[in-house]
Simulated assay, not measured.
Amino acid sequence: MSRKCELTGVGVQFGNNVSHSQRKTRRRFEPNIKIVKCHSELTGQEYKLKVVARCLRSIEKAGGFDSYMLNAKVFKMSDNAKSIRKEIKKIKYKVAA
């Protein structure tokens, strides 16, 4: 199970623990991954995604899951998220026409 957000691409970072004596040892900074079910109003389905907690705030700020998916950067998304975005986009433009 990779520690990576499916929507933003945020993953594990590496750095150092620095003690009082300035000794440096390597460590991992893991993202705050949550497994959530996001409901799409356009498709009427729920999608299970691994998302960073900060991204959940971004979804709320964007006005919901559908609007976030339509405005998000595609090159950072996982293949699963790209296919969800494609479904949402297809239905949105079918309704608009």
Rank of each mutant, 00 (worst) to 15 (best):
I33H: 08
E46M: 12
K34T: 06
K73S: 05
I91V: 15
V18C: 00
R26G: 11
K82M: 11
Y68L: 05
S40H: 08
V36E: 15
I88A: 10
T43Q: 04
R27S: 11
A72P: 00
R27D: 03
K82Q: 13
K24E: 06
I33D: 04
C55R: 03
A53I: 10
V18E: 00
K73H: 05
P31H: 08
R85W: 03
M69H: 02
K24F: 08
K34Q: 14
S40R: 04
T25K: 01
I33R: 11
S40Y: 03
M69Q: 02
R26H: 03
I35H: 12
K90G: 02
H20M: 09
R28C: 02
G63H: 04
A81W: 03
K37D: 15
Y68I: 03
S67Q: 12
N71E: 13
A62H: 04
V74H: 00
N80G: 01
I88F: 08
G63W: 09
I35Y: 09
K76F: 05
K89Q: 14
K76C: 02
Q45S: 12
S58T: 09
I84M: 03
L56W: 04
C38S: 08
K90Q: 14
R26E: 07
Y47P: 06
P31R: 08
A62W: 01
L42I: 14
I35W: 02
K34D: 11
E30D: 01
D66L: 10
S21F: 00
R27L: 09
P31S: 06
Q22M: 07
K90T: 14
R57K: 15
I35L: 15
I88Y: 11
I35V: 15
E46V: 09
I59Q: 04
A72K: 05
M77C: 07
L70D: 02
R23I: 10
I88T: 06
R54V: 01
A53Q: 15
I59R: 05
A81S: 14
H39A: 14
K50R: 15
N71R: 10
R23T: 13
